[in-house]
């Protein structure tokens, strides 16, 4: 099972990196989302894998999953929504302003691109 989780993290990271390298806003946002999943699962897995023992106290139970990474990842998920929303907004604003969804200014339009952003 460890192999499954670790490989899932690896696959999501690789896909996320590839999409980020497309250098257009929408794939970059999707890529960052994939990387977010990967990082969250990675952090979550730092509590090691436990099945059938959620950290909700019950009489008679002695083994629980590690609650700390869960709490940290929970806030990370919510924050990553906020971050995604801001990035999407910036990407959208850039596209609406220049009709171009590359994340970098294109070489031919570099001059006026630099002027309009400054």
């Amino acid at each position: 099972m460890e192999l499954l989780v670790a490989s899932a993290i690896g696959v999501m990271t690789a896909a996320g990196l590839y999409l980020v390298l497309r250098l257009r806003t929408f794939p970059v946002i999707l890529g960052i989302s994939l990387l977010t999943y990967a990082v969250n699962v990675f952090l979550f897995a730092s509590g090691r894998l436990t099945t059938g023992a959620p950290p909700v106290l019950r009489d008679g139970m002695t083994v629980y999953a590690d609650p700390l990474p869960q709490a940290l990842v929970l806030t990370a998920i919510v924050i990553s929504f906020g971050m995604t929303a801001v990035v999407v907004m910036i990407g959208l604003g850039a596209f609406l302003g220049s009709n171009d969804d590359h994340v970098d200014d294109q070489p031919d339009g570099e001059e006026d691109g630099a002027e309009s952003t400054s």
Binding site: I9, Y18, F42
Partner: peptide
């Protein structure tokens, strides 16, 4: 890009697998 992505993926995989065990 695939090369970079696969390298990154393998690295995270190895790191995760390492500490999970």
């Amino acid at each position: 890009d695939v090369g970079v992505a696969v390298a990154g993926g393998l690295a995270t995989f190895a790191l995760a697998y390492h500490y999970l065990l």
